Simulated scan of single mutants.
Amino acid sequence: MTKLLEGKTVLITGASGGIGRAAAIGAAQHGADVAINYAGNDAGAESAVAEIEALGQRAIAVKGDVAEPETAQDFIARAVEAFGKVDVFVNNAGICPFHAFLDMPVDTFERTMRVNLHGAYYMVQAAANQMVKQGHGGAIIAVSSISALVGGEYQTHYTPTKAGVHSLMQSAAIALGKHGIRCNSVLPGTILTDINKEDLADEAKRKYMEGRVPLGRLGQPEDLAGPIVFLASDLAQYVTGAALLVDGGAFVNLQ
């Protein structure tokens, strides 16, 4: 297999499980050393590091809450200490505590905003500053969502954050282009992760969701690894400000 990220250092937030973990393993399979950020799943982080090392790549795990600005500075500093540079940054960390709109608790709304949107801003800004300091460009990829483009009855706090992350990549692409830094987003559809495990425990709902997808199945975290690796690689050297749907065709299936 051609290793698209040979010699690169990749940083990924929220990577002890789900999409982040799959992207971390995918990056390592393509020759990258990987630093992962995670909030609380120590066992998941340790096993992700072990799996990356088993592929012959270096890896570190740095625990921290992305909602806190200092976490971004610490994550970047620890990665640079370990690997000497930051070539690729993947903003993946996010939460979606499903809840109705009319009685949305203030704490739930605020926490979702701080993790998903504020955390993305702090992390992307810190990674970009390091890339500018290095002077050899880089790639930033944000995991947005199909929810940036469509609504969700129990996601009124979540969908604005994903639209915000998508918009952040568009604006950052303009701000950072002169530094050779490309900024893009991936927009997953329904991916089977811990974030929606409870919501999709209802077999009827899961079957309905599968029926809406032209490819006939819900996504797996590994389905995002390839698109993220592509956007991180030199194959996408003229791609910036773009949004790549990774949803099995769900978005276009209106009829």
Rank of each mutant, 00 (worst) to 15 (best):
165 V>P: 04
147 S>E: 13
65 D>I: 04
150 V>D: 11
1 M>Q: 04
38 Y>D: 13
147 S>L: 14
161 T>N: 05
66 V>T: 06
249 G>H: 05
22 A>M: 07
143 V>A: 07
177 G>S: 11
173 A>K: 00
80 V>H: 03
198 E>C: 13
193 T>P: 15
148 A>Q: 11
172 A>H: 00
59 A>S: 11
223 D>L: 14
51 E>S: 02
175 A>G: 09
108 T>R: 00
254 L>H: 11
42 D>T: 09
109 F>N: 00
126 A>M: 04
185 S>K: 06
17 G>H: 08
175 A>I: 12
50 A>M: 09
55 L>M: 08
160 P>D: 12
242 A>G: 12
185 S>Q: 10
230 F>K: 01
82 A>H: 01
57 Q>L: 11
99 H>V: 12
173 A>Y: 00
1 M>Y: 03
9 T>F: 03
207 K>F: 02
206 R>G: 05
176 L>E: 14
75 F>M: 08
35 A>L: 02
73 Q>L: 10
193 T>R: 07
120 A>F: 04
197 K>I: 14
187 L>S: 08
37 N>G: 07
203 E>G: 05
24 A>T: 07
29 Q>W: 01
247 D>W: 06
91 N>E: 10
186 V>H: 13
84 G>R: 01
101 F>D: 10
133 K>T: 13
197 K>E: 13
131 M>K: 01
66 V>C: 09
35 A>I: 03
123 M>D: 06
106 V>H: 01
71 T>I: 12
232 A>Y: 01
224 L>D: 15
98 F>D: 12
131 M>W: 03
98 F>E: 10
109 F>G: 03
130 Q>K: 14
174 I>K: 10
103 D>T: 00
34 V>P: 00
255 Q>C: 15
218 L>E: 15
4 L>C: 11
226 G>E: 14
177 G>H: 07
53 E>K: 05
230 F>S: 08
21 R>S: 12
20 G>M: 05
126 A>T: 00
91 N>H: 08
41 N>M: 11
